[in-house]
């Protein structure tokens, strides 16, 4: 019990700290690397919550695919230097105050909500076996539709990334 508690605190600390560093680091490449640390911490939380399948998928999809895509774009656009122009101090102050107000609202709503009293049944969810059973029985149609969504996204990305000047001046 105490071990999982310590692990929870450690992972939460790592997640929040690296999330803050994502926001405040000047170099976009550093932001990406800190975001990868955040994602690994969240994957650790998934393992702690008995969601092994989601932890694996999270590491593969986010740390493996999405972050590589981000790094690739940053390298391609040659943004790996601290060239960002900064917002004015007033804007930064306004942004911080707005985010703080949002946090106050969230904290207030969480504190004001009544305690959850549902008695959970001891059913295993989250292993690959159980997730597969649910995914392919109850959620088969959304699963298939999401494949169409990914296909559409791929076609859209290729269409957007295509050089429109191709026909006019062939390289």
């Amino acid at each position: 019990m105490t071990f999982t508690n310590n692990l929870f605190y450690f992972l939460s600390f790592v997640a929040v700290l690296s999330a803050l560093l994502v926001v405040f680091s000047k170099n976009p490449v550093h932001s990406v690397l800190y975001l990868i640390i955040t994602f690994f911490a969240i994957a650790g939380h998934y393992v702690l919550l008995n969601a092994q399948f989601l932890a694996a998928v999270h590491v593969i999809v986010y740390a493996g695919a999405i972050m590589v895509l981000f790094l690739y774009v940053i390298m391609l656009l040659n943004l790996n230097h601290e060239s960002e122009t900064h917002k004015s101090t007033l804007m930064k102050l306004a942004a911080t105050i707005s985010a703080g107000l949002l946090l106050v609202v969230l904290v207030g709503s969480i504190r004001g909500s009544e305690q959850l009293m549902v008695q959970p049944q001891q059913v295993e969810v989250g292993s690959v076996k159980d997730m597969g059973r649910v995914l392919f029985k109850e959620f088969l149609l959304p699963f298939e539709i999401s494949s169409v969504l990914l296909l559409v996204a791929m076609i859209g990305a290729v269409m957007l990334g295509k050089n429109e000047e191709e026909g006019k001046n062939p390289s």
């Binding site: 929040v16 999330a19 803050l20 994502v22 926001v23 917002k87 930064k92 306004a94 942004a95 911080t96 707005s98 985010a99 703080g100 949002l102 946090l103 969230l106």
Partner: peptide
């Protein structure tokens, strides 16, 4: 909230 802060910041 950190995410929102980043979007605004």
């Amino acid at each position: 909230t950190i995410g929102v802060l980043g979007v605004l910041f």
